[in-house]
């Protein structure tokens, strides 16, 4: 079953077209990755799914329902969560307030206590810093808060925008471990990454973007052995 389906989606910022008729599907329970260099349009793809960017053409469907054009909070109500690039925390809130903000919507509110315990179980570091202001955390800790806040939303589909960006190798491992764990628990994941090697290893299916177009797709093993991908992204 397709959970998320994009058909011919285009988007522009002013006169600059960023997405050119891209199409992809994310099936229920899978971890699907979107790879590509800086400026390929990966972040815009995510933004046009969650309502932060309005596509100029094409449709995005979720569970068969058209969601392109909905305001961002309506998309969130459907159970779609984005862990945005650059964390986007609430800087003047504590760690715990940031997490609780994730459970703002009614559906998530009912599970607030349970999800909070789960977030602290996944990232014990956050439990130690629960009363600390988000802006005073290190980059890695902020990323943990961002992921924890996403989980607080009790999502059906969670999207990560470059979660390993700017993290130390050890923390990159940690972030990938968490994503693999969520995947094993059956959560549907759409992952945007530049860390190609690690991503190919955990993804069920991958799309590759270049200049606003999807230029290649396939499962991780196929892409890993594809000479073009090897040359462009893996460097050998």
């Amino acid at each position: 079953m397709n959970v998320l389906e994009a058909r011919g989606v285009s988007a522009s910022y002013g006169d600059t077209q960023v997405l050119r008729e891209i199409s992809f599907t994310v099936k229920k329970g899978l971890l699907v990755a979107l790879l590509g260099a800086n400026g390929a349009g990966k972040t815009t793809t995510l933004k046009s799914i969650c309502g932060l960017v309005r596509p100029s053409a094409g449709t995005v469907r979720y569970d068969g329902r058209v969601i392109s054009g909905l305001p961002v909070h309506k998309v969130a109500e459907l159970g779609i969560t984005l862990v945005p690039e650059g964390r986007q925390l609430f800087p003047k809130m504590t760690v715990e307030e940031n997490l609780v903000a994730g459970s703002y919507l009614k559906k998530a509110k009912e599970k607030r206590k349970e999800n909070l315990d789960r977030a602290y179980a996944v990232f014990p570091r956050l439990a130690e810093r629960r009363t600390q202001m988000a802006e005073t955390l290190s980059g890695g800790e902020q990323q943990m808060v961002a992921i924890g806040r996403g989980l607080m939303q009790s999502p059906d589909l969670i999207m990560f925008d470059e979660p390993s960006l700017g993290l130390s190798p050890l923390l990159v491992e940690e972030v990938f471990r968490v994503m693999r764990m969520l995947h094993e628990q059956g959560l549907t994941i759409f992952l945007v990454e530049q860390n190609v090697r690690q991503t190919l290893r955990i993804a069920d299916y991958c799309y590759v973007m270049e200049n606003g177009r999807i230029v290649q797709e396939g499962n991780g093993r196929d892409l890993e052995s594809d000479p073009r991908v090897r040359e462009a992204y893996l460097g050998f």
């Binding site: 969650c50 309502g51 932060l52 305001p71 961002v72 909070h73 969130a76 109500e77 969560t81 984005l82 945005p84 986007q88 925390l89 609430f90 800087p91 003047k92 809130m93 307030e97 609780v100 903000a101 994730g102 703002y104 919507l105 998530a108 509110k109 806040r149 939303q153």
Partner: peptide
């Protein structure tokens, strides 16, 4: 209150507040 949480979230990061489901 959760209303206040939404207000503060909006004031601190409008896009992120929207992602949490706060109706701007």
């Amino acid at each position: 209150t959760d209303f206040g949480l939404g207000v503060r979230a909006l004031a601190q990061n409008r896009d992120a507040a929207g992602l949490m489901g706060v109706d701007n």
